[in-house]
Amino acid sequence: MMPAAAPDSTPDDRDRFARALVALVPNLRRYALALCRSRDVADDLVQATCERALAGQQGFEPGTRMDAWLFRILRNAWIDGFRRTRAEGVVVDIDAASEVAGEDRVRTGESRLLLDAAGRAIMRLPEEQREVLLLVCVEELSYREASALLDIPIGTVMSRLARARSRLADDLGLNAAASRPHATKEAGS
């Protein structure tokens, strides 16, 4: 059946939708990369997402976060098809690369990603942690929004996110405690 569109949608809304969609392409690509870690696959994924978004525009509720709506479409596209075609190879390459001391870039199947040290550290996180970190810390979704998008409890969002950030902090030497004289690690208390 046809879904009823939001009653207050106007041509201006639709114009905004088109512009917002294009404006959000970098965000979509960033999320796509966090999922697949390949430039080529990420681009295809973003394109498929935009096609689905255009075709299903009436499913978007004005006034809600469009990026979260698009992320969900992208994630579904990834789960539906892209992931299967890509499951082998790349992930292994990256995990192996992360073990190599001094590895300068994260290699992917087809190409190299343009990443800085923080970007590399993020890409080396396990997929579940990487995804949550990206959604909350980079795209600034609330825990609740991330929970809804990923269909997981907020507690799971928090535990994945905390682990991702501990690991990131270790990787990048961000532990504030380590750089302060008073902050010797306490085993107990």
Binding site: V22, V25, V46, I122, A169, L174
Partner: peptide, 30 residues
């Protein structure tokens, strides 16, 4: 502070968001 730092570092990380001409291609698609 470490949690704040990790959030900031993640937000500022270079993550190859732009791609080569992806945005242009999507604009064309639209």
């Amino acid at each position: 502070a470490t949690y704040r730092d990790t959030a900031r570092v993640a937000r500022d990380a270079k993550l190859d968001a732009e791609g080569d001409d992806l945005q242009e291609r999507i604009a064309r698609l639209v």
